[in-house]
């Protein structure tokens, strides 16, 4: 099945001001496609979380959205630094966020578990010194 939409957004380390703009843009595009409000909200929340993670934790990376007739695949790829202990990072409340992120109301250690909860499929691969890739799938029905 040929993809309906393919979008890539580059996200810079430390770019707190624009963090979330890719997710907001994608949400608008998907709304125009007629995606239901409930699925749209789950996708937007997970996307915003992963976008914030790129800004807060990564050295920079990109978000890739692929929409097909059955669902949306969202891939986040970064250039490091990688997560040493994924099991720990998946626990609610565990956070390594800096003060700047916390002052904006983030870094409560809810991001990764919240992505997993909102996505129909969730996969995280990480290698220290290389980078982290998170793949999420959202079914449209």
């Amino acid at each position: 099945m040929e993809g309906l939409i393919h979008e890539e957004y580059y996200v810079n380390k430390g770019d707190y001001v624009t963090a979330g703009s890719a997710s907001a843009d994608m949400k608008r595009k998907l709304r125009q496609l007629g995606v239901s409000a409930l699925i749209l909200r789950r996708l937007a929340v997970a996307s915003y979380e992963v976008e914030l993670n790129l800004v807060i934790h990564s050295l920079g990376g990109k978000l890739i959205f692929d929409v097909d007739s059955e669902g949306v695949t969202l891939i986040s790829e970064d250039r490091g630094p990688g997560i040493p202990d994924i099991e720990m990072a998946m626990k609610e409340g565990f956070s390594t966020a800096n003060d700047e992120a916390r002052s904006l109301g983030f870094g409560a250690g809810m991001g990764l578990p919240n992505m997993k909860r909102n996505a129909d499929e969730f996969d995280i691969q990480s290698k220290v010194g290389v980078g982290t890739t998170i793949t999420m799938r959202f079914l449209l029905k």
Partner: peptide, 15 residues
């Protein structure tokens, strides 16, 4: 009581 644009963006994501 938080006062920055991410309050609005967060609200936008959640409708």
């Amino acid at each position: 009581g938080l006062m920055n644009p991410h309050v609005i963006r967060t609200s936008e994501m959640l409708d």
